[in-house]
Amino acid sequence: MHVADRAPRSAHRLPPFEALLDDHAGAVLRFLVRRVGSVDAEDCFQETFLAALRAYPRLQDAQNLRGWLLTIARNKATDLQRDAARRPLLGDEAAASAATVDQPAESDGELWESVRRLPSKQRSAVAMRFVEDRSYDDIARAMSTTPDAARQNVSAGIKRLRRERA
C-alpha cells in the first residue's frame, strides 16, 4: 500500500489482531485445555479472544501480548469454574490457587506479575476491569457480589499495585 503520510512508529503500536491469532492462539488453547479441560476449552478460548478483541484498541502496552491474552484466559477459566461450582467464593479461591500452580512458563511483564500476586478477588476484579474493560456491574455479576464491592476490590488492587510498583 502506498499512503501519503505515514503514521509515526512507536513502541506502543499494536500489530493487527490477526497476528495475535497466528502467534498465540495455540498457546492460549493449550493453556485452557489444561485449566478447564477439553470440553470447555473451546468456548473459553472464544470468550478469551472476543474479550481481547473488544479491549484491544485501548491496550497501552504491546510488549507482552501473550501474557495479556493468558491473563484474560485465566480469568475466563475462573469465571467458568465459578459458574460450574455455583459456589462463588470457594470457586474463586480454588481457581486462584490453581492459577498459582498452573502458571505457564511465560516471561510476562512485571505488571502482569504484580497483578498475578494480588489476592484473588482483587486480581480478578482488576483484570476484568482493566484487561477486559468490563463495567463494575458486570464484574459484580461475575464475582457474585455487589457493584460497590467490585469497585472496592478494584480500587484496593490498584492501591496495592501502586504501592508495590512505587
Binding site: M1, V3, R6, A7, R9, R13, L14, P15, P16, F17, E18, A19, L21, L53, Y56, P57
Partner: peptide, 13 residues
C-alpha cells in the same frame, strides 16, 4: 496490515 492497524484500527482480521 501494520499500516492499517496504525492508521485505522488494530482490530483487523
Amino acid at each position: 496490515l501494520d499500516e492499517l492497524a496504525a492508521r485505522l484500527s488494530p482490530r483487523i482480521l
